[in-house]
């Protein structure tokens, strides 16, 4: 897979405190906030029907539960390897969302969501979103 530039965010899953208490373990049944996992918009036909990345001009390969992606934070070079554990993000609701590193290295379209453990290995959770390069 050639590298994909896009926007990353994070979500909680598994047993947890607060609004995450009822999050469940994701579409794959294995998601936990403390593990190196992520959500991918094209894990199945049902998933794709919800996330519709093609609406934003993004044509993503079908990848199923357990597949490993490698993601690099364009702002600091940090890189993590994570496995698919859920369907998401809902790309079509954030078409054109643009995130930059201080005005440079801009990416757009929400393509990947990480667990808190994985996102915090790339950057601060309080950033909310990051510009990233995704490879397989």
């Amino acid at each position: 897979m050639a590298g994909l530039y896009g926007v990353a965010s994070w979500f909680c899953c598994g047993n947890a405190w607060g609004p995450c208490g009822t999050a469940g373990h994701g579409a794959c049944g294995t998601c936990n906030s403390g593990s190196y996992q992520h959500a991918w918009p094209n894990t199945s036909d049902a998933c794709f029907a919800i996330t519709r990345p093609d609406s934003c001009g993004e044509y993503l390969n079908r990848r199923t539960c357990g597949f490993t992606h490698y993601t690099t934070n364009l702002c600091n070079g940090r890189r993590v390897a994570t496995q698919i554990a859920d369907c998401g993000p809902q790309t079509d609701l954030f078409c054109g969302q643009t995130v930059c590193c201080g005005g440079t290295n801009c990416t757009w379209n929400r393509l990947i969501d990480f667990t808190p453990a994985a996102f915090s290995a790339l950057g601060s959770l309080s950033s909310g979103v990051l510009p990233v390069l995704i490879t397989a």
């Binding site: 190196y36 934070n73 070079g77 453990a117 790339l122 950057g123």
Partner: peptide, 17 residues
Amino acid sequence: FASGTSEVAPGAPDPDF
């Protein structure tokens, strides 16, 4: 979060989190 690559295996729990 200075540049570097995490050593945790994909899918595994992170012992530092």
